[in-house]
């Protein structure tokens, strides 16, 4: 069976997007999208963990028996989260101060686990790594978009504090969209997370229907 990298990229970023199509990882999606910058940070940290976990599970896939696969997957995800946490704390301390809040939350995300089960446990190392990277980037994209919608309506800014996350060179991203105090507070509170996510899912499906693809059903594509 030939592996279609094109398919993996399209699935991860759009067609089978973790948040907008599969509706997985809703806990960090709701909690961490109060601003575009937070969404971006959470998404990138998750992408790193997903790529590493997919790689490891694919490498060991012939040794993991069906009966114990779930505890092994959880072990691998949790270990990777801890690796990232420790290494960033030690050697990327400035970044850790910003992202540190998000990292332990990745363990509670079921998207990495879903990709391990439906993809990495059956596919070779390189496609699995690619799947982890692009599913992670798709997650990042969704979280950044949801965060952007909530931030613009909720606080009137876009990418506030981006320079803390990405470095001073990205100061230009920080925009004041609405006048100060014009924000609708509800959008940064939990209900705003559901509203923004729901509306973006509708928008994605409308785009898909208009493109003649029909509504993409959630579920794992086989490659």
């Amino acid at each position: 069976m030939a592996t279609s990298y094109n398919r993996i990229v399209r699935d991860g970023l759009w067609d089978n997007n973790g948040v907008l199509a599969m509706l997985l990882g809703m806990c960090p999606t709701m909690a961490m999208t109060t601003s575009a910058t937070n969404g971006l940070g959470m998404g990138l940290a998750t992408a790193v963990v997903m790529a590493a976990s997919n790689l490891m599970v694919a490498a060991f896939r012939n040794y993991i028996t069906r009966e114990v696969r779930i505890p092994v997957y959880i072990l691998i995800v949790a270990a990777n989260v801890t690796f990232v946490d420790l290494v960033m704390n030690a050697w990327m301390h400035e970044l850790y101060k910003v992202l540190g809040l998000f990292i332990p939350l990745i363990v509670s995300n079921c998207l990495p686990l879903a990709r391990l089960e439906s993809f990495a446990s059956k596919e070779p190392i390189i496609p699995s790594l690619m799947d982890g990277i692009f599913m992670g980037l798709g997650f990042t994209l969704s979280l950044t978009m949801i965060g952007a919608v909530r931030e613009i309506i909720g606080s009137g800014t876009l990418f506030a504090d981006a320079s803390l996350l990405l470095g001073p060179a990205f100061k230009f991203l920080e925009t004041q969209v609405l006048a100060e105090d014009m924000g609708v507070l509800m959008m940064i509170l939990p209900p705003g997370g559901f509203l923004a996510t729901g509306l973006l899912i509708v928008a994605k499906r409308m785009l898909d229907v208009r493109a003649g693809k029909g509504i993409q059903m959630a579920g794992a594509h086989s490659v």
């Binding site: 040794y63 993991i64 505890p71």
Partner: peptide, 13 residues
């Protein structure tokens, strides 16, 4: 066998 496999992974990680 399953216990052994799980044990080896736990030990390794």
């Amino acid at each position: 066998t399953h216990a052994f496999i799980l044990g080896v992974f736990c030990l390794g990680f």
